[in-house]
Amino acid sequence: NRLGIIYEIQGMKAVVLTSEGEFLIIRRRKDMKVGQQVSFENEDIYNV
C-alpha cells in the first residue's frame, strides 16, 4: 500500500500528494475528500 493526501478531485480521478513529494493521479473512490489521507495500490495509479 502507498499513502497520499488528496489534493484535488476531477471526475473519476483524484490527484494525491505522496510523502515523497510526488503528485499522482489515482482512481477515485466515492468516500474520498480533499485533504484526506488515503492508501492506494500501484494498480490504482493512472499512467500519464
Rank of each mutant, 00 (worst) to 15 (best):
N1I: 15
N1E: 12
N1C: 12
N1S: 08
N1F: 09
N1P: 09
N1M: 13
N1G: 10
R2F: 13
R2D: 03
R2K: 10
R2M: 12
R2C: 11
R2I: 07
L3R: 09
L3Y: 15
L3S: 11
L3E: 10
L3D: 10
L3I: 10
L3W: 12
L3K: 09
L3Q: 06
L3F: 13
G4Y: 02
G4N: 02
G4A: 05
G4V: 03
G4K: 01
G4F: 03
I5T: 07
I5L: 07
I5E: 02
I5P: 00
I5A: 05
I5V: 12
I6C: 08
I6L: 04
I6N: 00
I6M: 02
I6K: 00
I6V: 15
I6F: 01
I6T: 01
I6E: 00
Y7R: 12
Y7H: 06
Y7M: 13
Y7D: 02
Y7A: 13
Y7T: 10
Y7G: 01
Y7E: 04
Y7S: 06
Y7F: 06
E8W: 09
E8R: 13
E8Q: 12
E8F: 06
E8M: 09
E8Y: 07
E8S: 14
E8A: 13
I9F: 15
I9Y: 03
I9W: 03
I9C: 08
I9D: 00
Q10R: 13
Q10V: 13
Q10M: 13
Q10K: 14
Q10W: 11
Q10E: 15
G11E: 12
G11F: 07
G11A: 08
G11W: 07
G11T: 05
G11C: 08
G11P: 09
M12N: 12
M12I: 09
M12F: 07
M12H: 13
M12A: 10
K13E: 07
K13T: 11
K13H: 15
K13G: 06
K13R: 10
A14K: 00
A14V: 10
A14E: 00
V15A: 04
V15S: 08
V15Q: 03
V15N: 04
V16D: 00
V16I: 08
V16S: 00
V16W: 00
V16A: 02
L17Y: 07
L17W: 14
L17P: 00
L17R: 11
L17D: 00
L17E: 06
T18E: 01
T18W: 03
T18P: 00
T18G: 04
T18I: 03
T18V: 06
T18N: 02
T18M: 04
T18K: 01
S19D: 14
S19G: 04
S19T: 14
S19R: 14
S19C: 13
S19V: 05
E20S: 11
E20N: 11
E20C: 13
E20K: 10
E20T: 14
E20P: 02
G21P: 01
G21F: 06
G21H: 03
G21E: 03
E22K: 08
E22Y: 10
E22N: 08
E22V: 12
E22R: 08
E22S: 09
E22T: 11
E22A: 11
F23N: 02
F23Y: 08
F23G: 01
F23H: 11
F23P: 02
F23K: 11
F23T: 09
L24D: 01
L24R: 04
L24C: 09
L24M: 09
L24A: 09
L24E: 03
L24S: 04
L24I: 11
L24T: 07
I25K: 05
I25L: 14
I25H: 08
I25S: 08
I25T: 11
I25M: 08
I25F: 07
I26W: 01
I26M: 03
I26G: 00
I26T: 01
I26K: 00
R27D: 06
R27L: 09
R27S: 06
R27W: 15
R27V: 08
R27C: 09
R27I: 15
R27H: 09
R27K: 12
R27E: 09
R28F: 15
R28S: 15
R28I: 14
R28M: 12
R28Y: 15
R28P: 07
R29Y: 05
R29H: 12
R29W: 09
R29I: 06
R29M: 06
R29E: 12
K30E: 15
K30C: 15
K30N: 14
K30G: 15
D31K: 09
D31F: 13
D31A: 08
D31E: 11
M32H: 13
M32T: 05
M32L: 03
M32P: 01
M32D: 05
K33W: 12
K33R: 14
K33S: 13
K33F: 09
K33Y: 15
K33A: 11
V34G: 02
V34N: 03
V34H: 04
V34L: 13
G35Q: 03
G35V: 00
G35H: 07
G35R: 03
G35L: 05
Q36V: 07
Q36L: 04
Q36S: 13
Q36K: 05
Q37E: 15
Q37H: 13
Q37T: 09
V38W: 11
V38K: 01
V38R: 02
V38D: 00
V38S: 02
V38M: 04
S39L: 06
S39E: 15
S39F: 08
S39I: 05
S39W: 10
S39Y: 12
S39P: 08
F40D: 01
F40G: 01
F40Q: 01
F40N: 01
F40W: 09
F40C: 02
F40E: 02
E41W: 06
E41R: 14
E41S: 14
E41C: 14
E41N: 08
E41F: 11
E41I: 13
E41Q: 13
E41G: 13
E41P: 06
E41D: 14
E41K: 14
E41A: 13
E41L: 12
N42R: 10
N42C: 12
N42P: 06
N42M: 13
N42T: 12
N42V: 13
N42F: 12
N42L: 11
E43G: 05
E43Y: 04
E43A: 06
E43H: 08
E43W: 05
D44W: 06
D44I: 04
D44A: 03
I45M: 04
I45Y: 05
I45S: 04
I45V: 08
I45F: 03
I45L: 11
I45K: 04
Y46H: 09
Y46V: 09
Y46Q: 13
Y46I: 13
N47V: 15
N47S: 12
N47Q: 08
N47R: 03
N47H: 14
N47Y: 08
N47T: 13
N47M: 09
V48I: 13
V48P: 14
V48W: 04
V48C: 15
V48M: 08
V48E: 13
V48N: 15
V48Q: 15
